[in-house]
Amino acid sequence: MKLNMPRHQQIYAWLLLFPALALLAAFTHIPMIKTLWRSFTSSGMQNNTGFTLDNYRYLLEDDVFWQVLSNSLWYAAVTVPVSMILALAMALWVNGKIRGRSALRLAYFTPTILPMITVANIWLFFYTPEIGLFNNILGWFGHSGYNWLGDPDLSLFSLMLMTIWKEAGFFMIFYLAALQGISRDFYQAAAIEGSSRWTTLRRITLPLLMPTTLFVLINAFLNAFKLVDHLFILTKGGPNNATNLLLYYIYENAFSFFDAAYASVLTVVLLSILVVLAVFQFGVIERRVHYR
């Protein structure tokens, strides 16, 4: 698309864009470039120590990094689809004609309005083996329960569970809004054509929800990498890094280990992952989405 604007209008347009661009540059683009620069030219807390690949070499040798990376990818790969499917199911459920659906909507939405730190503090006590809710419930069935956060085979799963609980309600709201925007005529036409519920869901509802799904997908992926507040409360990345996620590891390096250089390298890795995801989502999936 080519815009043929008169010159004075172009200047006007740039003037209007300028404040936002300036803010973006100051707080997003310049720090990003600085981080990239730092990752090649600093060591520990010292800046400008000359060009070096040491920080990247350390990355390759760092077992913890590889574990953290795999944790992060698993974390995203599980929490994103599960919370989205749950969100969709809940939205379809509360969108139907059932009694007390506004109460139900509120119930589903509540986790979303609580701050992550608060949620984590509540769930910390849910998960605690001796006094926690989950093991008490399992106890009624004669099960001795689990050490949810203390068992390295279980702890990442426990984090995922809480994240899904928190995120699904949030995404449900988007799906619910989208569902209410779909004309009833479509469903009536489909019903007359003898389309089963499943066919209607698969061939009409889901395709019409695709723009929402894309939006939710991007947000869910970003959140999966961005949200680590709960780690500070629940596990601090333990036991033995079983729940350590990339952003938390960056925090640890920058503020606990005083290693800004290595934190920059990790930040570059995180940024690269996010860029790849964004390109994939906008480039590949977008083409298959129908916008009304």
Binding site: S183, D185, F186, Q188, A189, A191, I192, E193, G194, S195, R203, I204, P207, L208, M210, H290, R292
Partner: peptide, 21 residues
Amino acid sequence: RTPGQRQLSMVFQSYALFPHL
């Protein structure tokens, strides 16, 4: 009977064409 079982067709005021198909 459900609409689909009635052996009839219908044309809507809004056309009700599926926009993504």
